[in-house]
């Protein structure tokens, strides 16, 4: 598996610095499980965080802070490093996504929403929402653009639009400048994890199925 489409540095840094919301970290963290080169980048960013922490002006703690912390130490049980679990059958949804589904992709109860398209909402925080979308081979969701940014991570299958082809692990970022009409590849169902921070805008008066998906 070669991943060709990666999140921009701003999304990796939002995840590494902690400024990004849970919605951003869910999709970036799931991409990271599949993408060693992006994990190297995030590790460098966390190292920046460590350097900034090391160089920051200290703020004096109160006189009793240390002694009250020391008094609690004996009551705290130490965490043990996690052991590798027994080998499992092949898994499509990596952590952290699997915890949000409470299982693998086959556990998802899909909500049909149009010809060949179904979805399942996973998370909503402030203005952003994350959902799983499943499309049948050859199915599309209509031509649309975005008021905000949309991140789409392919979990299985693939899709193609004017910007390229996207397969497992690839992450597409679309902005208001991009008008696209993604079509599912012919080799099977495509499941994606998608995040938007604003409603989509459809280019025809006949609102596509995504209108129902992301019509806020």
């Amino acid at each position: 598996m070669t991943i060709r489409h990666h999140p921009g540095d701003e999304f990796l840094l939002a995840h590494a610095s902690g400024a990004g919301s849970e919605t951003v970290s869910l999709i970036v963290g799931t991409h990271l499980a599949l993408c060693p080169p992006c994990r190297v980048k995030v590790a460098s960013m966390e190292q920046m965080g460590g350097a900034l922490l090391a160089g920051i002006a200290p703020a004096e703690m109160s006189a009793s802070a240390l002694s009250s912390a020391m008094a609690k130490l004996d009551d705290i049980a130490a965490d043990k490093p996690a052991q590798s679990s027994d080998p499992l059958p092949p898994v499509i949804a990596p952590e952290p996504l699997r915890s949000y589904i409470h299982g693998d992709i086959d556990r998802v109860r899909w909500i049909p929403i149009g010809p060949g398209v179904s979805y399942r909402p996973l998370l909503k925080r402030r203005d952003a929402r994350v959902q799983l979308i499943r499309t049948a081979p050859g199915a599309g969701v209509g031509t649309h653009t975005h008021r905000g940014e949309e991140l789409t991570l392919v979990l299985t299958g693939g899709f193609t639009d004017v910007t390229g082809s996207y397969r497992r692990g690839d992450l597409q970022t679309t902005t208001p400048e991009i008008v696209h009409r993604p079509v599912t590849d012919a080799d099977g169902y495509c499941v994606t994890l998608a995040m938007t921070d604003a409603p989509l805008k459809f280019m025809s008066p006949i609102v596509g199925v995504l209108g129902k998906l992301f019509g806020f």
Binding site: E22, L32, A33, S85, I92, P94, S99
Partner: peptide, 18 residues
């Protein structure tokens, strides 16, 4: 009051690097 979703190196779907 949010969760911190992150990858798990012991996960069976995790793709190891160097």
């Amino acid at each position: 009051h949010e969760r911190r979703p992150d990858f798990d190196p012991n996960d069976p779907a995790f793709v190891p690097g160097q």
